[in-house]
Design a protein around this nucleic acid. Sequence first.
DNA 1: TCAAAAACATGACATTCGTCATGTTTTTGT
DNA 2: ACAAAAACATGACGAATGTCATGTTTTTGA
Lengths: 249, 249
Amino acid sequence: MASERAPLSKRPKTSSSKRIGVSTDSLLDHVRLLNILSPQDRQRVLGELSETRYGKDDLIFREGDPTEYFHIVKEGTVKCVKSTSDGKECTLKMLMPGDLFCCDAAAFDGGHHPGTAQPMGNVRILRMRRKAYFDMLRRSPDAAMEVIKYLGNRLNEAQEKAKILALDRADQRLAALLADLATRNGIKDPQGIKLPMRLTRQDMANMVGATTETVIRIMGRFKRDRLVSGTANRLVILDPERLKALASS
Amino acid sequence: MASERAPLSKRPKTSSSKRIGVSTDSLLDHVRLLNILSPQDRQRVLGELSETRYGKDDLIFREGDPTEYFHIVKEGTVKCVKSTSDGKECTLKMLMPGDLFCCDAAAFDGGHHPGTAQPMGNVRILRMRRKAYFDMLRRSPDAAMEVIKYLGNRLNEAQEKAKILALDRADQRLAALLADLATRNGIKDPQGIKLPMRLTRQDMANMVGATTETVIRIMGRFKRDRLVSGTANRLVILDPERLKALASS
DNA sequence: TCAAAAACATGACATTCGTCATGTTTTTGT
DNA sequence: ACAAAAACATGACGAATGTCATGTTTTTGA
């Protein structure tokens, strides 16, 4: 069940790296870390960043690979997963544009990635060598504070997730996930809140620590109760409030 | 089941704060964050730190309280817990001497504590006002880097915990916990590795996301299989290797 | 030291959830 | 447009775990 590294062949939009520095770009305005830098620091950092594109069958890095780069999501969605030896997978976090990753493991000085980073569709990633990242943090207290805040939020998120996994039933965990995705990433739609990324029952199962069958059955109930509608490509949250209530009942 | 705030009465070693600065002290040598500071910064930081003692029935702070201080564990063990409205509890982390806490939530500028900090027995805590903590981080890139590394490790830990909760059975989670406690905090003993803190079946249940009864039954099996021995006050890990094997099977 | 409280233990039973098998519907790539 | 692959769906069954009830042992505090 663990996916093999995809052949980097004949797919049009597969991994390709531009070594040139990243120019000032409206997409980058979403990246807080870059916005708080002084103009000189910002220029310097942009010179160190390079952009890479990945397709849905690529992996940005795998669990156990040595850490070389600090990363920022520029466009698209990236899944952070861990797997067991017998092929079961657990999705730790969906990274969205502006999210940082390997801002931590990189600190291990040559440590290894604790999980795999996998694009969900086409993504654009900015990256920077570890050394340049460290230099940026040492030069700019603002950047360091920003990373501390970011990591603090990620830690709180991860602990909240652990609490939910430890104490709640599968239907509550799924309701919490859907409500959270709706408020974080949802897009208003005539019938409700549409989720912008493809999300299969299996994807949800990996996110809430349940099997695909269990998620299918629960989604069936949710659909019957008019809480959600649609499947992977057009998943719409109809009643986030009632989902939240269900999650914490 | 949610414990009420204990009356701060007639218990001999209950919460008491010294407003005086902390003098150079061999116990502080364990705190990496303080050791990496330059001599001037170190003096300045020590002047900002104050020491507080708590007993086992005190709470250092509760979930929902506003964040005011940055904390360091000087002596003893502190439990970080989250609870649900219906009284179920989940222990997120056992903090040991040298551990930092609220190095993150404090970054929210007046945010609220996402969990409760509860001493397990008598503890000594160093703390520093949020403002002084920020100043330290801005002045010293070394301190900021240290906090980033610390938070990165905590994030990885939390995500590993989430993975275990999502994918493993209760006996595997318990085995992983016991093996981990043995290697992290265990003390060599003629019959095996003794755990230095009191740890009831209920404590373990809260740490692995299971009920007390389930943990009692599993511990019964572990005892029969000569993997562990003893109860709360004298818990001894007899075979950490076999526990680790069980955890990842 | 002694009584009360907490921790530990065990059984019966219910619930939740995973597993496996099978079939239908939707999506994908050419 | 069409075949293949993925995703979705459902039922039967069993394993893991929670719940409740009850009893024993250990620890605690005066």
